[in-house]
Design a binder for these strands. Structure first.
Length: 605
DNA sequence: TGGCAGATCC
């Protein structure tokens, strides 16, 4: 955008044609006078008045003054980007400070492309880019996931001889992390002479970006044993997130302890991460406690709590928290509504879900995203309203994706509707989405209908496309370590003990009336073989291991990557009763709490 | 005159 066009379109105060001579008045207002006035501004109105005065006195021609006008207007909470931009374009020869300010403000406002354009303009004009330029330009690349641009900028950093600046290096680490290039992030980190807490935070965050959760925790350990930095809030946020994903509440609780020891008053971000960690690791009540004792809550705190309650199938409470949020005057956004709708879906609140879906659009003027449709299809599908769900998809204003069709497909599996199921699967494959899970759901529907030729057809298709099922695994925490089990796994060092335990358990299970549900096994093999396969599902291995390794009566917490099969569900119910253990299992979608032979989902899932 | 790191979504 050229300077002239900005001048025409804006309601900006006009610039005098010539710089006036320095007058007495000018001198009075000069020096720190205007600066302190600028600093005291609390609204655009006040700012405009000061701006007018500055123009009247001709001080704008002092480049230092113009720069400060831009910075104040761009970076203040009450400021206006448009207005700041117009002032910026009036400056005859903007230097790196002005460009840096504008880039920074644009990144803060998520105008990321604009920020990169300004940077390009800077280069084009030959304006010196200094070490203050890069952290924000790199952040723009991070947020855009723009690796190509990031690498180019890394080149510029070398050209400018800024590769040793800690701030720039931290920015590079984050950029590479967010763009999925963890090795490059590690290279930068390892080559650093001087590391700040933020450097550790960046490298841990980079590992979090690529979901290397165990490494996040290991790096926290490395930092602590190095002994030069104390873990502080931002680092602990990433590591809490690692605990959340690993399902390790014990490690999470240690981090909570470190936080309480090091910091007197935790900020909103940390508390929100704490809630998320507790809730997703099965300690819903602890999460609720942190939430209820927060003095300041923001939209995200509410979102985390609402989706947390949804995760645990506590739909009504989620709706209650949602109304609290609205009452507090926080405007709901699309993400909160994803939480609200999924809460309705997990708890089977069909009527409420439909109401929320309507008021989202009519009252809050939020256009449904693909996620909202996903929740609605899920909600209707679970409730057996397959025809209605299919109609909703047909009437969608945006193109349905594989996830939406996938929800319908799994609902069809639950309610055994092969006809609509086939349509859903067809649409998924038409989208050129070949997720092995979808093929398997379809195959299992054919298997249940005893249509073995169709099962074979789907299997062949999978083989042709080289699709392999993502191996199912379960994680369980014992003795402050996370242990991983894969289905049919015999590689564990404790393998023999675990298999012995499984045989022992089998015995008692049979006695209590459990019978394996072999319809879950897709292979056309005999019953005996099917039973053998079921026995060693990763969740069962993890339970057996936990029964051996943890003390009697203590709860067992498992998290797994795939959805639980219904046989594991029944099995776990029995185990919770026989061994008198509370067992919670987290899968991709939700929590199941098993106690005394029943599950918190009331078998609705 | 100014910089880096952190939390939510089927």
């Amino acid at each position: 955008m050229s300077g002239a066009s900005v001048l025409c379109q804006s309601n900006l105060l006009s610039l005098p044609n010539n710089p006036p001579q320095n007058s007495e008045l000018n001198a009075k207002f000069n020096d720190q006078g205007w600066l302190s006035l600028l600093k005291r501004c609390k609204s655009m109105e006040e700012f405009k008045q000061v701006h007018a005065q500055i123009l009247k006195l001709g001080l704008f021609w002092d480049s230092f003054c113009g720069s400060n006008l831009v910075a104040t207007c761009a970076l203040s909470r009450w400021g206006s980007m448009e207005y700041a931009c117009s002032i910026f374009r009036q400056i005859e020869e903007p230097g790196s400070f002005e460009y840096n300010t504008m880039i920074r403000a644009n990144v803060n406002n998520m105008n990321l492309e604009k920020a990169l354009l300004l940077y390009a303009e800077m280069l084009e004009r030959g304006i010196e880019h200094d070490n203050f330029t890069y952290p924000f330009v790199l952040k723009a690349c991070s947020l855009l996931g723009a690796l190509k641009e990031g690498v180019q900028i890394h080149g510029q950093v070398f050209k400018a001889g800024l590769e040793d600046d800690t701030y720039v290096q931290n920015g590079l680490i984050s950029m590479y992390g967010k763009c999925g290039e963890i090795n490059h992030a590690c290279d930068v980190f390892e080559q650093m002479d001087e590391r700040s807490v933020a450097s550790w935070s960046s490298i841990i965050g980079a590992h979090a970006s690529v979901e290397l959760w165990q490494d996040c925790l290991m790096l926290l350990g490395d930092m602590s044993s190095e002994g030069r930095h104390r873990a502080e809030e931002s680092i602990l946020v990433s590591t809490l997130s690692a605990c959340t994903h690993l399902g390790s509440p014990d490690i999470g609780r240690c981090i909570h302890g470190i936080l309480l020891r090091n910091i007197s008053e935790l900020n909103v971000v940390v508390k929100t991460s704490l809630i998320d960690m507790y809730v997703k690791c099965g300690h819903l009540e602890k999460g609720l406690w942190v939430f209820q004792n927060m003095a300041v809550k923001n939209k995200l705190s509410y979102t985390v709590m609402i989706s947390g309650l949804a995760f645990h199938g506590r739909g009504r409470e989620a709706l209650r928290v949602f109304s609290e949020m609205v009452e507090e005057g926080l405007a709901p956004d699309d993400v909160v509504y994803v939480g609200v709708l999924s809460a309705c879906s997990h708890a089977g609140l069909v009527k409420e879900g439909l109401q929320c879906f309507n008021s989202m659009q009519l009252v809050h003027k939020i256009k449904p995203t693909i996620q909202h449709y996903g929740c609605m299809v899920d909600l209707m599908g679970r409730a057996g309203m397959l025809k209605e769900a299919y109609d909703l998809i047909k009437g969608m204003q945006i193109k349905p994706n594989d996830v939406v069709w996938g929800s319908l497909l799994s609902a069809c599996k639950v309610h055994l509707n092969l006809e609509i199921g086939e349509i859903a699967a067809e649409n998924i494959f038409k989208l050129n989405q070949h997720n092995p899970g979808d093929y398997l759901v379809l195959a299992s529907m054919y298997a249940r209908a005893q249509k073995w030729t169709d099962v074979a057809r789907i299997r062949t298709k999978m083989a042709e496309k080289h699709l392999v099922q993502t191996p199912g695994f379960s994680l369980v925490e014992a003795n402050r370590k996370v242990h991983k089990f894969v289905s049919q796994d015999k590689s564990q060092p404790e393998c023999d003990t675990i298999y012995d335990m499984i045989h022992q358990m089998e015995w008692q299970l049979k006695f209590e009336g459990y019978g394996p549900d072999t319809s879950q096994v897709l292979l056309d093999v005999d019953e005996e073989e099917k039973r053998e396969r079921l026995k060693y599902h990763s969740q069962k291995l993890a339970i057996a291991f936990a029964l051996i390794q943890t003390s009697e009566g203590s709860p067992i917490r498992i998290s797994r990557n795939l959805r639980m099969c219904s046989d594991c569900h029944t099995y776990t119910k029995f185990i919770s009763m026989i061994y008198e253990r509370e067992i919670s299992v987290r899968d991709r979608n939700r929590f199941h709490h098993f106690k005394d032979g029943t599950c918190s989902c009331k078998d609705y899932w």
